[in-house]
Amino acid sequence: MKTLEVEFEEEKLNKMIAIYLKVGKLSNIEPRLLHNAFTAKHYCGTKFHHVKLHIESTEIKIQCESCNHITQIENYKFTCENCHKPSKNLIQGEEMLIHKIEFND
């Protein structure tokens, strides 16, 4: 919420109706717990009690250093599906991003 308060004016924040987050599977963030914490913090009577939180989990992806192929990781096996070489070049899966904000204009 602090990020949004920095980015948007008070008038715009008062029109906010939904926040969409992308949370990577390696981010150490449990979407259900984040949603529960948001709900508890912004329960009735607070400024953002009407705002809905939507959380999308993003898969783990690597880009192979050898062949440049992008692989979606299954079962935490960090191996390129194209050339079968191990890779630690993580390109998705650790993020927590504000993907979209919805306003009632």
Results as ranks from 00 to 15, higher is better:
residue 100 K to R: 12
residue 70 I to E: 04
residue 33 L to W: 04
residue 47 K to R: 15
residue 12 K to T: 06
residue 18 A to I: 01
residue 43 Y to S: 14
residue 76 Y to K: 14
residue 25 K to L: 14
residue 39 T to N: 12
residue 28 N to L: 07
residue 63 Q to N: 06
residue 70 I to P: 04
residue 59 E to N: 15
residue 22 K to S: 14
residue 71 T to G: 00
residue 12 K to G: 04
residue 11 E to H: 09
residue 67 C to K: 00
residue 79 T to R: 08
residue 37 A to S: 13
residue 92 Q to L: 02
residue 80 C to H: 04
residue 78 F to T: 07
residue 57 S to V: 11
residue 25 K to C: 12
residue 51 V to W: 01
residue 94 E to W: 02
residue 22 K to C: 09
residue 40 A to K: 14
residue 1 M to L: 08
residue 75 N to W: 03
residue 37 A to I: 09
residue 62 I to D: 00
residue 13 L to A: 04
residue 88 K to I: 01
residue 17 I to C: 11
residue 17 I to K: 13
residue 64 C to S: 04
residue 22 K to L: 14
residue 31 P to V: 03
residue 28 N to W: 08
residue 18 A to Y: 05
residue 80 C to P: 03
residue 29 I to D: 10
residue 38 F to K: 08
residue 86 P to M: 01
residue 94 E to T: 08
residue 62 I to E: 00
residue 11 E to R: 10
residue 73 I to Q: 01
residue 22 K to R: 15
residue 10 E to Y: 11
residue 43 Y to W: 10
residue 39 T to F: 13
residue 1 M to S: 08
residue 52 K to W: 10
residue 82 N to P: 00
residue 66 S to W: 08
residue 13 L to E: 03
residue 30 E to S: 09
residue 94 E to S: 06
residue 74 E to A: 09
residue 100 K to C: 02
residue 97 L to Q: 05
residue 24 G to F: 12
residue 47 K to C: 05
residue 11 E to P: 08
residue 58 T to F: 12
residue 68 N to G: 06
residue 51 V to T: 01
residue 35 H to A: 13
residue 3 T to S: 15
residue 7 E to H: 09
residue 73 I to G: 03
residue 50 H to M: 12
residue 94 E to K: 13
residue 68 N to I: 00
residue 90 L to R: 02
residue 61 K to A: 06
residue 55 I to N: 14
residue 83 C to Q: 03
residue 54 H to E: 14
residue 8 F to C: 09
residue 78 F to L: 06
residue 78 F to V: 03
residue 6 V to T: 15
residue 6 V to I: 13
residue 47 K to W: 05
residue 20 Y to W: 09
residue 82 N to M: 02
residue 57 S to E: 12
residue 20 Y to N: 12
residue 79 T to F: 00
residue 73 I to V: 06
residue 91 I to Y: 01
residue 52 K to P: 05
residue 98 I to C: 07
residue 1 M to E: 01
residue 15 K to L: 09
residue 31 P to I: 02
residue 39 T to V: 15
residue 43 Y to G: 11
residue 88 K to T: 00
residue 56 E to Y: 12
residue 27 S to C: 09
residue 70 I to C: 05
residue 13 L to Y: 06
residue 101 I to E: 06
residue 45 G to Y: 10
residue 18 A to S: 09
residue 65 E to R: 15
residue 79 T to I: 08
residue 44 C to Y: 14
residue 100 K to P: 05
residue 63 Q to S: 11
residue 48 F to A: 09
residue 6 V to H: 15
residue 76 Y to E: 06
residue 54 H to T: 15
residue 91 I to L: 00
residue 18 A to F: 04
residue 26 L to H: 03
residue 103 F to Y: 06
residue 35 H to T: 11
